[in-house]
């Protein structure tokens, strides 16, 4: 098991290296002089030359690559072009907000999605199944920024129950939790529908397995078959999809972050792209890839833990 986890982590590092190489290549293929971007159009040629030497842009490309990877291996993601602050520090500042939002959205969405999916299977082919089906597709179809705006208008502006913007003051746990409700609702809602659909599909597949017929032929109650047996199999099938989805949430929550003015990785990436702040873009993209890879490793380990066939093959 330890070896399995170490191997997964090693593979994750390889993926991150590939991402870093692609990013490095892309930075050098972007048209335009990076010194102009950094120093502005009114900089003198001397200033640009000095900057080029400072950043090591005058050296051969392979030397630059070596320097880039060397810095990366020390956890140095470079500096913000404008504020000159280390990118890593900036990311670590907003990361907790992003992770709490993603975790909060996901816990309730996955829990409710699984419950709805199971309910649809229990009443398979009857009206609750149809109702949950229509509801789920509807939830998937509504974009999260629409939910964001409407929930903001209803619960924050009209009813004034919850804060409209911000992430709460530092140290104020209740305030932070209250500020989390609306964004996590907006982000999670679509996932409820999505998870309930895949849980339903995976459960129906599981209920068609031969062992379910065996259990039925022994008179084992349907509820027991569904919750004790089929759900475990269905969860394994859903797990990897959920893990990828969770990775996507870490940057995909950009709309909710903008609407609710929350600091976060998504908003940071968006701002950096708009202002051509390349080191920050690189840093956030690398960080997102790292989080994705972490999610996949966790999903693999959980799968190995739940599935004896996978576990024994380790």
């Amino acid at each position: 098991m330890t070896f399995f986890i170490l191997r997964r982590i090693g593979l994750g590092l390889v993926i991150l290296l590939i991402v870093a190489l692609l990013l490095f290549g892309m930075m050098h293929m972007i048209p335009g002089d990076p010194t102009v971007v950094a120093l502005g159009p009114r900089s003198t040629p001397e200033m640009r030359e000095a900057f080029r030497q400072l950043m090591g842009l005058d050296r051969p490309i392979f030397e630059q690559l070596g320097l880039f990877l060397g810095r990366l291996s020390q956890g140095n993601l470079g500096e913000d072009v404008w504020s000159r602050r280390p990118v890593l520090t900036m990311i670590l500042e907003v990361l907790p907000y992003t992770v709490t939002l993603a975790v909060a959205s996901f816990i309730w969405a996955v829990a409710l999605g699984i419950v709805l999916g199971c309910a649809a299977v229990v009443h398979h082919g009857r009206w609750p199944d149809w109702l949950i089906g229509v509801l789920s597709v509807g939830l998937v179809a509504v974009p999260s920024f629409v939910v964001s705006l409407y929930s903001l208008l209803i619960f924050a502006v009209t009813l004034n129950w919850l804060p409209a913007i911000g992430a709460g003051e530092p140290g104020d746990i209740m305030g932070q939790a209250r500020a989390l409700i609306l964004p996590s609702f907006a982000i999670g809602l679509g996932w409820v529908g999505y998870v309930s659909r895949i849980v339903r599909a995976a459960m129906i597949e599981a209920m068609g397995e031969a062992y379910v017929r065996t259990l039925r032929s022994f008179g084992v109650p349907e509820r027991k078959i569904i919750y004790r047996y089929a759900l475990k199999q269905a969860f394994l099938a859903v797990l990897s999809v959920i893990a990828i989805g969770f990775g996507g949430l870490l940057t995909g929550s950009v709309f909710a972050e903008i609407v609710f003015s929350r600091p976060g990785l998504g908003k940071m990436t968006y701002d950096a792209v708009i202002s051509r702040n390349y080191p920050v873009v690189m840093g956030t993209v690398l960080m997102t890839s790292g989080l994705y890879v972490t999610c996949m490793i966790i999903a693999d380990v959980v799968t190995a833990f739940l599935d004896p066939r996978v576990r024994s093959a380790l």
Binding site: E209, Y211, T214, F218, V220, R228, Q233, P308, R309
Partner: peptide, 30 residues
């Protein structure tokens, strides 16, 4: 009557049991 009345043995034993639960667990559930 499923079980006490008539008990079934199926064609393919490899798929007749849940792959994710021990045999002891499944037999106990019966």
């Amino acid at each position: 009557l499923r079980g006490p009345g008539a008990a079934m043995i199926f064609q393919n034993p490899m798929t007749a049991f849940s792959p994710l639960h021990t045999l002891g667990h499944q037999l106990t559930d019966l």
